[in-house]
Design a binder for these strands. Structure first.
Lengths: 340, 340
DNA sequence: GCTGGCACTCGTTTGCTGGGAGTGCCAAGC
DNA sequence: GCTTGGCACTCCCAGCAAACGAGTGCCAGC
């Protein structure tokens, strides 16, 4: 049976182990935390905790180390989210308010998150799939070369070059611009890309050739899900703080290069709900020694992407969870503002 | 005196040490390279090389290790650039030809370079400062909110939101668009930003308020040198291959987070001239154990940015130099094509 | 049910030693 | 005069044993 005091002991073990990176023994425990009982009692509790699988002893005469299950219990039952200090809050808001565009927001956030948590931070770029087309602009660069620019509701701008076989008159371009905007404005990009398919025949049949070229590139730009797969990473240097190079650092360092892996790690967590995946709970056996703290972000509960931190299972969960939630909220707020 | 055979010995030492990561002795040397002389002779040569400071002995009864000075001589005198294999060439061109825009080129290049060299690759985003304005587009999103879009000669697109105090009529916006383009089209961005200063009074005095707002944001977008400071990094996981965590890996890992440091490392190397900076030759004493191989890129010898690889002094210089040069050439070519 | 005492376990540190890799030097040979 | 084989010497390192000590489990007493 795991009663309150045993939970206290578990919490103390987790905290000490996170702080010292060394197995923690009964004596050190009662010295550093005022548990109000003697080492012998703590030892009895530890024996039970070990039997239940929450802690583990590397070898006979060593202290105890939390298991993944122990961390899990710690996170579920014990972690009171440390609130951010006002200084930290101010740092977040001033930094992110200074961002000039969406990419800037992402890059600043990821940097910030890694600095706040002293861990490796990951921020997924906002997905485009749920955004709507705000405006399409066509610009003639030369008579046979135009640039199409798609402005999305999230504030993101996609641009593509179009090469034409024959010159296109400005008047025709203007007409095409009107037609395209009429067809796509306010429509979700996937639907907008589909809607464009009907245009070539509907507008100026004699210009169908041009229309088809422009519309083709436009549709491609709108169905480009490149962004859905992009992530920004920061703070790899924080891994250097950890020992255990081969089991903890190296696999993670390798994973950081594989953005697909990172996306899977981030998962699809809901907005405002912080998810913690501990060690083996994650999808990769090589990353059994790393934990992930993530949450979704997006204006008004619309999930646009995920962000979070990764690090060794032995990480500061309460601090990481608080920072992840705080940053996600600010990012959501900024996306909300840009959206009006 | 350093004659030809001693150079051969030095080369052999460098090659073996790079391959094995271990001090190399005279016996192993004659076995693995057909130098045509006995170990004793090689020892005599090594004694001279050591006296001259090209190699170093960690301790008595150990093999020799090249010094920074030794690598320098190796690079200057001995390294014949390995040509890229045709498979590698094809990989480069197919990958980079598939890039859809400038950022994509940069991201694909850096990835590619790190894979080719199995080192950490760094690519600076092309600087905007030398590019000219190709077109400025103004788009009304709501009556009091507009988006300004600047298309540059390099193909880069900058966008900014403008908030207006009072509604702006479409006709006025159109007129402003014409005026702005007349003032800036084909002009280098710095000059264009300056030229915009005169606009508010010259065009429609009664619209000066609006003009000033739009022009202000435009000028800001044009003088935004954010891009000059941006770099893409890839291949940090390759550091894991190296031992010597504290002296070689950790400082570099930390440097990778500091883009300012990376920019300084990249330096301002000329297009088509590969620069090698070995160990202490670089600007940072913490990075005394790392070397940098860089070159500039840009269409028609116009330096738009730099790219390169960093790694421990014990790196494969010929291979790295060849890969850096090859990638830079392809990037230059692509920028050139987009520029026509 | 908590506590102090105590014997026990076992990883780590320290000190030592033998083997081996590699060198420098020397005398002889081409 | 350069090259070569031989040889004594140096010094790192792997391997081992002993001492150490942190931490435990268990037990008897409160």
């Amino acid at each position: 049976m795991v009663d309150d005091r045993k939970l206290d002991v578990l919490r103390a073990i987790v905290e000490d182990y996170v702080a010292t990176e060394e197995p923690v023994g009964s004596k050190a425990l009662v010295e550093r935390h005022h548990l109000g009982v003697s080492p012998a009692t703590v030892r009895n509790d530890m024996a039970v905790l070990e039997e239940e699988g929450y802690i583990h002893q590397p070898h006979t005469s060593a202290g105890r180390v939390p298991t993944d299950k122990g961390y899990r219990l710690f996170v579920d039952k014990l972690a009171t989210l440390k609130p951010m200090s006002t200084a930290e809050r101010r740092a977040i808001s001033t930094l992110l308010d200074g961002a000039v565009d969406l990419d800037d927001v992402v890059q600043k956030s990821v940097r910030l998150l890694s600095q706040l948590t002293r861990q490796v931070a990951i921020v997924q770029y906002p997905t485009l799939s749920r955004s709507t087309v705000r405006h399409v602009e066509l610009v003639a660069l030369t008579p046979t070369r135009a640039m199409v620019i798609v402005i999305l509701s999230t504030g993101r701008v996609e641009q593509r070059l179009v090469e034409l076989d024959s010159p296109l008159a400005d008047a025709d371009l203007a007409e095409l611009r009107v037609a395209v905007n009429r067809a796509t404005s306010g429509v979700q990009i996937a639907a907008a890309a589909a809607a464009l398919g009907d245009l070539p025949d509907a507008v100026r049949p004699e210009q169908a050739e041009h229309t088809r070229a422009v519309v083709g590139v436009l549709a491609e730009a709108m169905s480009d899900h490149r962004n859905d797969e992009r992530v920004a990473v920061s703070g790899a240097a924080n891994l250097a703080r950890y020992g255990d190079f081969d089991t903890a650092v190296r696999p993670l360092l390798e994973a950081l290069e594989e953005h697909v892996v990172l996306l899977k790690l981030l998962g699809e967590s809901g907005v405002d709900a912080v998810t913690v995946r501990i060690g083996h709970e994650g999808p990769y056996s090589e990353l059994a020694a790393t934990s992930v703290v993530t949450t979704g972000y997006g204006p008004q509960e619309h999930h646009l992407g995920s962000l979070g931190v990764v690090g060794p299972t032995r990480m500061d969960y309460p601090g990481s969870m608080a920072a992840v939630r705080a940053v996600a909220r600010y990012v959501s707020r900024i996306l909300d503002e840009g959206n009006q």
